[in-house]
Simulated scan of single mutants.
Amino acid sequence: MVKEPELKRSELNKRKKKVIKPLKHKYFTAFLFVFVVLLGIFFLYLGHLYKDAQEMTTKIYSSSKITKARNTQNLLKEGKPISILLMGTDTGAVGRSFKGRTDTMIVLTLNPQKKKMTIVSLPRDALVAVTGYKQYYPSKLNSAYDYGGSGTAIKTVQNYLNIPIDFYATINMGGLENMVNAVGGITVKPLLTFSYDGHSFVKNKKTHMNGSAALAYVRMRHSDPLGDYGRQQRQRQVLTKVAQNGTKLKSLLKERFFKEIQKQLKTDITFNDMIMLALKYRVATRNMTSDHLQGEADLVSGISFEAVPETEKQRITNLIRSSLNLETATTGNTLLNSSSINTTEK
Rank of each mutant, 00 (worst) to 15 (best):
residue 2 V to Q: 12
residue 5 P to D: 13
residue 5 P to S: 08
residue 7 L to C: 12
residue 9 R to C: 04
residue 15 R to W: 14
residue 15 R to M: 15
residue 22 P to A: 05
residue 25 H to R: 06
residue 27 Y to K: 12
residue 32 L to Y: 10
residue 33 F to A: 04
residue 34 V to K: 00
residue 36 V to W: 01
residue 37 V to C: 07
residue 42 F to Q: 11
residue 52 D to Y: 13
residue 53 A to F: 10
residue 53 A to L: 13
residue 62 S to R: 15
residue 64 S to W: 07
residue 66 I to V: 14
residue 76 L to W: 04
residue 82 I to F: 02
residue 83 S to Q: 04
residue 88 G to D: 13
residue 89 T to E: 10
residue 95 G to A: 14
residue 97 S to G: 07
residue 100 G to F: 04
residue 104 T to E: 11
residue 106 I to T: 12
residue 107 V to Y: 01
residue 112 P to Q: 12
residue 120 V to N: 01
residue 124 R to L: 13
residue 126 A to T: 11
residue 131 T to N: 09
residue 133 Y to I: 00
residue 134 K to V: 03
residue 135 Q to S: 14
residue 137 Y to L: 07
residue 139 S to F: 00
residue 142 N to D: 15
residue 144 A to W: 03
residue 147 Y to D: 11
residue 151 G to Y: 07
residue 153 A to F: 08
residue 154 I to V: 08
residue 155 K to S: 05
residue 156 T to R: 07
residue 156 T to V: 05
residue 163 I to W: 00
residue 168 Y to C: 09
residue 168 Y to Q: 06
residue 172 N to G: 03
residue 181 N to F: 04
residue 186 I to P: 00
residue 187 T to L: 03
residue 190 P to D: 14
residue 194 F to K: 03
residue 196 Y to W: 05
residue 197 D to T: 01
residue 204 N to G: 04
residue 206 K to I: 12
residue 207 T to E: 05
residue 218 V to H: 06
residue 225 P to F: 13
residue 227 G to T: 10
residue 237 Q to T: 06
residue 237 Q to V: 08
residue 238 V to Q: 08
residue 242 V to T: 09
residue 247 T to W: 09
residue 249 L to H: 04
residue 251 S to N: 13
residue 253 L to D: 05
residue 260 E to C: 03
residue 263 K to N: 09
residue 273 D to K: 10
residue 278 A to N: 02
residue 279 L to D: 14
residue 282 R to Y: 03
residue 283 V to Q: 10
residue 293 L to H: 08
residue 294 Q to R: 15
residue 294 Q to F: 02
residue 300 V to T: 11
residue 301 S to F: 02
residue 322 S to N: 15
residue 323 S to W: 00
residue 332 G to C: 14
residue 333 N to C: 13
residue 335 L to R: 15
residue 338 S to R: 07
